[in-house]
Design a binder for these strands. Structure first.
Lengths: 167, 167
DNA sequence: TATTGTTATACTCTATAACTATA
DNA sequence: TATAGTTATAGAGTATAACAATA
């Protein structure tokens, strides 16, 4: 649990956990056997690395996931996209404002229901997403495969998905 | 990635991701194959369940991890405990204030170095931690074993630890 | 009356700078 | 001068209530 970090790209911040001196022989004890602790630490590491790999495109994991969803599901409205990703509608507004300001996607008022916006990728957004996918595959996911091996990596994703869906 | 939630105990909040209607057939696509997305969702689910199981003791994962560390490593100072857990020292102050106000641990000024505080569990803290461990083992971790099986669960923790330490 | 997008707002986490008291 | 604990503060992320436009 706990655990902090933030390596927006600068890669500064305190190394945390595996610091250096100071924690001269502090024992984690049961903590390392529980799931939550390594799970949280791994999640932070992965997001950190994702940010690093994505630095040239300046996309956060959340923004990347939105673009990916828009590509796969063009023309959906804000409520649909946000709820699929577990983003609350009010919080999705500023996020979309940002993506739209960068011309990566756009809101198109629906003709049928003039309350809702169809969300679509712009050409620029499509291009950025294509580059982003390549960066993630070549740098981020490739390193993962290197560390765990493809079979273990797949097993890991499967177990995490099972927890997310069934726990 | 994205994903939200917060089930401090009330278990309200929108179901997110696996919502109900609205997301009529929205496809996640590559998202489900990447590590970050299921990793984040699993982490939120696990913390949610941890909070639920821990509701009678009102301990967050972070607070639990601090108490566990104090039990295993009595007499360490704030810098040591905080850095081990990846908590920044400034943020650790309010956290300790809370635990001390509930008389679960206490700060003892060091005789050698009057700048630092030895951190120790109180008897009440030791008792709370004992109860907490039982709750986590009986409710939280047991359910995990049920879902994945002990071998898979161990493999999962091993892989996450590897990522946290070596990635 | 219900829903979509939105605003306002608040609370938690995380992060940095700078102070104080010791060393 | 350097370190331990602290204060103040700022920024993300996440949460809820309520409003305008539309259905």
């Amino acid at each position: 649990m706990t655990v902090s970090r933030t390596a927006t790209d600068g890669a500064k911040t305190q190394r945390a956990g595996r610091k250096e001196a100071e924690d001269a022989g502090i024992e984690l004890g049961e903590l390392s056997e529980m799931l939550g602790y390594p799970l949280k630490r791994a999640q932070l590491k992965i997001f950190e690395d994702f940010l690093r790999c994505m630095a040239p495109l300046q996309l956060t994991p959340a923004q990347f996931s939105v673009l990916l969803l828009l590509e796969r599901n063009p023309g959906r409205n804000q409520t649909e996209i946000a709820s699929t990703l577990g983003i609350l509608r009010p919080n999705f507004v500023a996020m979309l404002d940002g993506l739209e300001a960068r011309e990566l996607c756009s809101r198109v008022r629906s003709a049928n229901d003039r309350r809702s916006h169809h969300l679509v990728l712009t050409d620029k957004g499509r291009a950025a997403l294509a580059r982003a996918k390549k960066l993630v595959a070549a740098k981020h996911e490739a390193r993962l495969n290197e560390l765990l091996g493809p079979a273990n990596r797949a097993a890991l994703v499967a177990m995490l998905t099972k927890i997310a869906d069934e726990f």
